[in-house]
Nucleic acid binder design. Sequence first.
DNA 1: CGAAGTATTGATGTACTTCAACGCCTGTGG
DNA 2: CCACAGGCGTTGAAGTACATCAATACTTCG
Lengths: 247, 247
Amino acid sequence: MTDAAAVSTFQEDLKKRCSTCSLRHLCLPLGLDSDDIKRLDDIISQRRKVPAGQHLFRVGDSLRSLAAVRTGFFKVYELGADGREQVSGFQTEGDLLGLDAISGGAHRGSALALVDAEVCAIPFDRLEGLLAEMPGLQRRFHAILSGTIVANQTLMMMLGTMRAEHRLATFLLDLSARLGARGRSPTLLHLPMSREDIGNYLGLKLETVSRVLSHFRDQGLIKVAGRTIEIRRIDALRALVSGVLRH
Amino acid sequence: MTDAAAVSTFQEDLKKRCSTCSLRHLCLPLGLDSDDIKRLDDIISQRRKVPAGQHLFRVGDSLRSLAAVRTGFFKVYELGADGREQVSGFQTEGDLLGLDAISGGAHRGSALALVDAEVCAIPFDRLEGLLAEMPGLQRRFHAILSGTIVANQTLMMMLGTMRAEHRLATFLLDLSARLGARGRSPTLLHLPMSREDIGNYLGLKLETVSRVLSHFRDQGLIKVAGRTIEIRRIDALRALVSGVLRH
DNA sequence: CGAAGTATTGATGTACTTCAACGCCTGTGG
DNA sequence: CCACAGGCGTTGAAGTACATCAATACTTCG
């Protein structure tokens, strides 16, 4: 077996592991050699189950590990000065949790499992060591951090300028795209969070969320059955967001 | 001269350089040795002037360098699908520009100098190389990226839940704190941006910004003279934000 | 089944927007 | 020097999108 073939085999092996571990976006395609793969594998092989309703971490917990979501759904929220809750995001398969804790060393928010979930724990100190030695991984990690900044800015734009309908449409399309990218149905969504959580995330009240969903349903854009939503006319939702049907 | 003393001297030297270069937050305190300092110094020593009204970069420009603001004031904004502008932040002395471009390699927004400005350019490929070799610098850089995420989440919370008065108060306090941390007056603010820019950033219309500022003025919280604002009762602004005077 | 949490829908209230008029400042040309 | 134009900011009046309050239905689970 040639070296190249050996590397290739190892990469295939890693791909499988990462696939089951929902770490595709971190692991691939990095151009790793076999040693690198072993060491990365050691680090990311720790797993942890989090039952529905339990926290993966809470505000103030010190950062030991980042977590990559393998299965399930998390809600990350913060508490304002006056105790009000603010949902800052929903994480599912393939998403990383804990990035906000890198600055400061302690978690800024709490991560609650909305359904039974499993995560891969990535000890941060060991990851830092690997980053220094693996330029491809370093680049990928920076891209993830930067990508999180971009995603937040997109949400900011939404909260700053969009009307309720646009917000909901954007939310549904974003979820659809993320689930689709992970091999799930992009049209049949099982939202594990309440209307109130959605509203909180989008800067709306739960009644408004409900009303807008009903409105979409009446227009034939979606089909609503409790927390299961089927997107029927994704093109129309996109048109709504991009302003073609504005006003 | 002992090694320790040599290092200390070099750090002092770096501190001076970085101070003039507004890079204190990147350079210190890292525990660098003399070689490291030289190499970092090489990288960050490139400067560039940007006259008022000109762009440092525009959407789509490929990322060559990050930029640390030395003097002046920038507005970073993006264009939505329908062409509407969305201001995503104001950067001044000591702030880094271009972090959102790390993922994707191209700038997601445009950076416009609101007044004559000067920046230090930090070639990104060379910075990446240094990060791999300098653990302290790597950690600091990750902290900055993560800190940007946190700052954006704070803004998100603001846009999602706060009322107009709270937004303006938060905006003024944030600006005051940032300027104060860089040795400028925390109470006498020269805002180089228009009311429209402020409103855009905060998710409000320019008339609302004007009204709220007038309201603050009538309450004796601030003194307004065009784009110069003097904070007179910073405690009252803080109380407003923290919800003590809610409703 | 009953109870509690969650979702939908309606009626009313309000914070912010929109539309509009006017004042202030800066620069430009006669 | 004054006249006038064009930006920017302030203030008022009317409109609207969303919040709030409230009643009813659905869903889940002991």
